[in-house]
Amino acid sequence: MYFTVSLAILVTMVLAVIRALKGPSVYDRVLAVNMFGTKTALLLSVVAFLYGRPDFLDLALIYALINFVGVLAVLEFFQKRSAAQGHTTKD
């Protein structure tokens, strides 16, 4: 049962990677990375039970907490870049 679910999550991870590779816009790629991160957290929490090692849930917890920081950093990067471009193109 756990195995079936983890297989479904793995297939979704493959789809997310394909979207990240194809992604016409940069936002598609960020979306794919974010999705991949949450899927990793889910996969780890399922696999921790598949292996019977609930101690390992710490890893899923860390992804649930930290994956967000990467997306925010990307947003700040976009914001800074558009501010810099606005600076140069406006004048």
């Binding site: 590779l21 790629r29 960020v30 794919a32 990375v33 991949f36 991160g37 992804y63 990467g70 990307v74």
Partner: peptide, 8 residues
Amino acid sequence: MLMAIFSL
């Protein structure tokens, strides 16, 4: 972005 996926 792909490096982030690689690390995961």
